[in-house]
């Protein structure tokens, strides 16, 4: 593998994802924001693949960008929130400045925490021929119980969503 090309693409996708994320948080229209977020997720998917997690990259596109974000857009449109509202949904200047300060401080702390020398990546991980095998083995052996429990969580969430979104008997 061409290391330079690999590095170039890695930085490319990383920077695009960050730029998309910045665009996402600064859009006033929820629809535009959601689309920028989808873009971020696509870039992240590319990064996953480059980090030898091809299966997760695929799932990222299918589940996150494809399913979850579509549901978001669906709700936005269902509630007719497509246009920016009359009153800004952005906080005042003080709030934004403070939030920026908090963000900077958090970033600084994260960097300070992650100042560990990581080894350069050598070689590839696992068997490229089979990208599902390395993840399915622990998922169905070591993590079988959590796996089953998450299915229960999903069921509960579905029931809860139905109950919450259903029009109550008293509602108009």
């Amino acid at each position: 593998m061409n290391t330079l090309l690999y590095t170039f693409h890695f930085y490319l996708f990383g920077l695009i994802s960050i730029a998309s994320a910045v665009a996402f948080v600064t859009r006033k229209s929820p629809v535009a924001a959601a689309l920028w977020l989808v873009n971020t997720m696509f870039c992240l998917s590319a990064l996953y693949v480059m980090l030898d997690a091809q299966f997760i990259g695929a799932v990222q596109v299918l589940v996150y960008a494809g399913a979850i974000m579509v549901v978001f857009l669906f709700v936005v449109m269902l509630l007719n929130l497509g246009q920016a509202s009359d009153v800004t949904d952005m906080r005042g200047l003080g709030g934004r400045l403070t939030a920026g300060l908090v963000g900077l401080a958090m970033l600084a702390e994260l960097f300070a925490l992650s100042r560990i020398k990581f080894p350069r990546l050598t070689g590839a991980m696992g068997d490229h021929a089979n990208v599902v095998n390395p993840i399915s083995a622990p998922l169905f052996h070591e993590y079988l119980l959590p796996f089953e429990v998450t299915s229960v969580v999903l069921l509960v969430a579905v029931v809860g969503a139905v109950v919450l979104a259903k029009r109550g008997p008293g509602a108009s």
């Binding site: 996402f24 948080v25 952005m90 906080r91 709030g95 939030a99 920026g100 908090v102 900077l104």
Partner: peptide
């Protein structure tokens, strides 16, 4: 990305 998310939570309504 995480920090951008945090800032977004803090600034949007």
């Amino acid at each position: 990305l995480f920090t951008i998310g945090v800032v977004g939570v803090l600034t949007r309504r």
